[in-house]
Structures are given as structure tokens and as C-alpha cells.
């Protein structure tokens, strides 16, 4: 079977919308309805966050959603069951994002195999270093059929960007700014200069820009320089404030795609 990420990137090269949310938030059983609503609303790709007690690269919005999800009873085995259930209802590409310690505790190889079989397409493990990945895990990830994504930042040097592009089999995750997740400001000239610099490198993999992408305007800006963008904290804030999941998700995605002019106010 073709990996759904490969299928997506073969079909679509621009305005790819990747939406992140924390599994098991706001309620334990919300994972499936959120995925279904995102699929129906026209998201291209979903990044499901595995909640972790100490998420170093994330800001308060994602950390708090993770704490709540853990309290709700979310765990790796529970998430595995939920992914199996999701695959009965949706064929949207799914990427798991999470810190490495819970993966280690589950058993790394077992994790790759079980989640690939359940229908996950790719992984983002931001605190797994490149060297350890290459020497210890790359073979098992690839045998399981999972696509790997590594991060680059405005400080990443060109040679390292090229190496990460080689190693990434899914997409390259461009962190927009020197910051943890959850920023909401405008995109600066310094950031667009970095986007342009990386665009000019003609990488092999698609580039998605994340961190600080919070609505229509920043999504459009990101899409001018990359194949798409990732929205996380702003979506979680919307989920926290919304009443009904399906209508919250559908209006959020519509706002990102078309602008908030005719709809509810943005997350700012």
C-alpha cells in the first residue's frame, strides 16, 4: 500500500494544511471526532500529538493540553486503539508527533511496528537526535513503512539542512522562528528571508512551516515560501473555547483557508 504522505505529496504541492492537536484533548474520546471533522473540513494532513509531561519545545498551550490529556487517561496503548478506530472512518494522512521518552518506554521497535500497522504514516520525534536515529532506529522505522520528519530552524546551517533533507522521508519541518510553539505575532522580514533562503536550496522533500502559524494571514504567508504550513496551538485554543467539536473544527479550517473576514474573530 502506498504511504498516505507519499500519495498526498504526489497529488499536492502547495497550500498543504497540516493541523496539530493533542490526542485525548479536550476529552479522551475526542481524538476520532476531531480527525473526522478535520478530514471533512479539508485539512490535508493531521499531526496527532502524543501528550508528554515535559514537552521542551512547546509553549504553555500545548503543554497544558498534554497535561489535561494525561489526566483524561491518554496513553500510548489508548492512542494505538484510537488510531485503529480512526482508520475505520478516515483515510487522511496521519503523523504522530511526540517526545522520545514515552516511545522508549513502550519499546521503540514495537512502537514503530504497532503504529504503522494501525495506520500511522509518519513520525516527528523532536528530541530524537539525528545520530541516534541513524545508528539505532532508522532501519526499524523504514522497515515499518513510516516516514520520518526532522526539524530545521533559522539557525540551522546549510550543510545540516541538506543532511536533514536526506534523512527526512516525509517532509522537512521548518520551525518559523527561534521560539517554542504558540506564538501569534506577524511574520517578520527576518523570517521571510529565512523562508526564501531555504526555498532557494531546492530541497528534495516538501517543506511545511510551523510554529507561530495561527490563522489565514500567517498561513498564506507561509504558503508563499513553502508547500504548506502547520497550525497547532491556535487550533488547540479554538478547541478549548469551542462548544461543539465538529462546528469548531470546520469553522477553524474555513477561516484558515479563506480568511476570517466573514466569520468569528481570530485566536488573537
Amino acid at each position: 500500500m502506498t504511504n498516505r504522505l507519499d500519495r498526498l505529496f504526489a497529488e499536492k504541492q502547495d497550500h498543504i494544511l497540516n493541523v496539530y492537536f493533542t490526542a485525548g484533548y479536550p476529552s479522551l474520546e475526542d481524538t476520532l471526532p476531531i480527525v473526522q471533522a478535520l478530514d471533512a473540513a479539508g485539512a490535508d494532513l493531521i499531526e496527532i500529538g502524543m501528550p508528554y509531561s515535559d514537552p521542551l519545545a512547546d509553549g504553555p498551550t500545548i503543554q497544558e493540553s498534554g497535561m489535561k490529556a494525561i489526566q483524561n487517561g491518554m496513553s500510548i496503548p489508548v492512542l494505538l486503539e484510537q488510531i485503529r478506530e480512526i482508520r475505520k472512518h478516515s483515510d487522511i494522512p496521519l503523523v504522530l508527533m511526540g517526545y522520545f521518552n514515552p516511545v522508549m518506554q513502550y519499546g521503540e521497535k514495537r512502537f514503530f511496528k504497532d503504529f504503522a500497522e494501525a495506520g500511522v504514516d509518519g513520525l516527528i520525534l523532536p528530541d530524537l537526535p539525528v545520530y541516534e536515529y541513524e545508528t539505532l532506529y532508522q532501519k526499524a522505522v523504514e522497515e515499518a513503512g513510516l516516514k520520518m520528519t526532522f526539524l530545521i530552524t533559522p539557525q540551522t546551517e546549510e550543510a545540516r539542512i541538506r543532511a536533514i533533507d536526506e534523512l527526512s522521508t516525509g517532509f522537512v519541518y521548518m520551525v518559523s522562528n527561534a521560539a517554542v510553539t504558540g506564538g501569534q505575532g506577524e511574520i517578520s522580514a527576518q523570517q521571510t528571508a529565512y523562508f526564501e533562503r531555504v526555498a532557494a536550496m531546492k530541497l528534495k522533500r516538501p517543506r511545511l512551516i510551523g510554529f507561530g502559524i495561527s490563522g489565514h494571514q500567517s498561513f498564506e504567508t507561509a504558503c508563499r515560501y513553502a508547500n504548506g504550513a502547520i497550525i497547532g496551538s491556535a487550533f488547540i485554543r479554538a478547541l478549548s473555547e469551542g462548544q461543539d467539536i465538529r462546528s469548531t473544527v470546520i469553522s477553524f479550517v474555513k477561516n484558515v483557508r479563506e480568511g476570517a473576514a466573514a466569520a468569528a474573530p481570530s485566536a488573537k
Partner: peptide, 21 residues
């Protein structure tokens, strides 16, 4: 403690079976 990762280092740490610190 059991083997895992905390604050960027592979070491022994106190954690749940599911890897939460």
C-alpha cells in the same frame, strides 16, 4: 528510576510505565 530521557540526557529517572515523568 528506570531507563529513559530527562532534560536531554539518557539516564535513570522516575516515570510512569507510560513514560511520563
Amino acid at each position: 528510576g528506570t531507563r529513559g530521557i530527562i532534560h536531554g540526557s539518557r539516564t535513570l529517572l522516575m516515570q510512569t510505565k507510560d513514560g511520563q515523568i
